[in-house]
């Protein structure tokens, strides 16, 4: 009880607040996790094949493309930014993988495609951090610009990928787990480590909480903000790698509107659009909630028109519940 009445212990004010924050973060996190578990339990009753291993593997593979994008998006949203261009940057990397593989090997195509994605992210970062362009505007511009690049590169026609090793990368298994899922988990682990265990990661939270305070305490805000957008671009390139290798086609419309799915996953996962609060673990859970919902709607044969209602309602309800639990 005493924690909720800071006036009685004035010197503990800061400590109390941080304890409260941890408490609400825990509730937020467990709230999301509880929602996922509840959804899984309900789904297992709705369809007896839902809990089968092949289906669970399918879900893990199906969420990998948007899940990877969402991990990159988490960095950006933690800084109070937004990256609307990730779907288009994914598109650029997909057509580059396909185009380069026509004449070169995977060892050339993969780094080049990801580097190009990072370069587009760098342009975003410089625009946001040093030219003072609001993230929404900068990345909205890049959304259109990068999509244009993908169309110009392909002339509007999909480029087939006939490289078998590349196909196996996206469709194969390692230790019984689909490769795209492993790429998602790898991205997640590295990102989680960077965000929680490095000075850079802690600065990302600081920039999102209070940019001025972060600058005053010596955080190189411009540089770190730029790096965050490079990460988001590069991660979109990795997601493009999963896309291209799974589907073996370099289509210029790859990833259209995926930025919205990624943002939805981040928000459902409990990361605040106002910056400074959230985690990639939450993003993974958010991605899984959306993925499991799509899966069970397909398994139960729900009409695609109606599926959109469910998805929309889920996003709003999830954020509503989280907002309430963090206020409690």
């Amino acid at each position: 009880m005493s924690e909720t009445t800071p006036s009685s212990r004035p010197r503990d004010g800061a400590g109390t607040r941080s304890r409260q924050q941890i408490f609400s973060a825990l509730i937020g996190r467990t709230g999301v996790l509880a929602a996922l578990i509840l959804l899984i339990i309900v789904s297992s009753f709705l369809n007896d094949r839902f809990l089968s291993v092949p289906n669970l593997m399918n879900v893990l593979r199906q969420v990998s493309i948007v899940g990877i994008l969402a991990v990159g998006m988490t960095f950006v949203i933690l800084t109070k930014g937004i990256d609307l261009s990730v779907g288009s940057i994914l598109g650029v990397s997909v057509v580059l993988f396909a185009g380069i593989l026509e004449t070169q090997s995977m060892a050339v195509a993969i780094p080049l495609g990801i580097l190009a994605a990072m370069a587009l992210g760098l342009v975003n970062g410089l625009g946001v951090a040093f030219a003072g362009i609001p993230p929404f505007i900068m990345t909205l511009g890049m959304l259109s610009f990068a999509r244009g690049l993908a169309f110009i590169y392909t002339g509007g026609t999909p480029i087939p990928i006939l490289d078998e090793a590349f196909f196996n990368l996206g469709n194969g298994y390692t230790f019984g787990v689909p490769n795209p899922t492993l790429i998602l988990l790898g991205t997640l682990l590295v990102s989680g480590f960077v965000l929680t265990q490095t000075p850079f990661g802690r600065s990302v939270y600081a920039i999102g909480s209070n940019e001025d305070a972060a600058r005053l305490s010596g955080v190189p805000v411009g540089l770190y903000t730029t790096i965050v957008y490079v990460i988001s671009g590069g991660v979109a390139g990795i997601s493009g790698l999963v896309y291209a290798s799974q589907l073996s086609v370099g289509t210029p419309i790859a990833g259209q509107a995926y930025e919205l799915d990624a943002i939805a996953a981040v928000v459902v996962g409990g990361t605040s659009l106002f910056g400074g609060k959230g985690s990639v673990t939450g993003t993974l859970i958010g991605t899984l909630i959306i993925g499991v919902l799509a899966n069970i709607l397909n398994l139960t044969g729900v009409d695609p028109f109606v599926q959109q209602l469910f998805k929309g309602a889920l996003i709003v309800v999830a954020v509503f519940i989280m907002a309430r639990s963090s206020r409690a």
């Binding site: 896309y243 289509t251 397909n298 044969g301 695609p304």
Partner: peptide, 24 residues
């Protein structure tokens, strides 16, 4: 007709939809 899914004319959405239909 067992089920209907929206493939959006392209390859990507059709893969998970078909996977789920095959499971169901």
């Amino acid at each position: 007709v067992l089920a209907v899914g929206d493939g959006e004319w392209i390859r990507e959405p059709a893969v998970p939809i078909m996977e789920d239909f095959l499971t169901a």
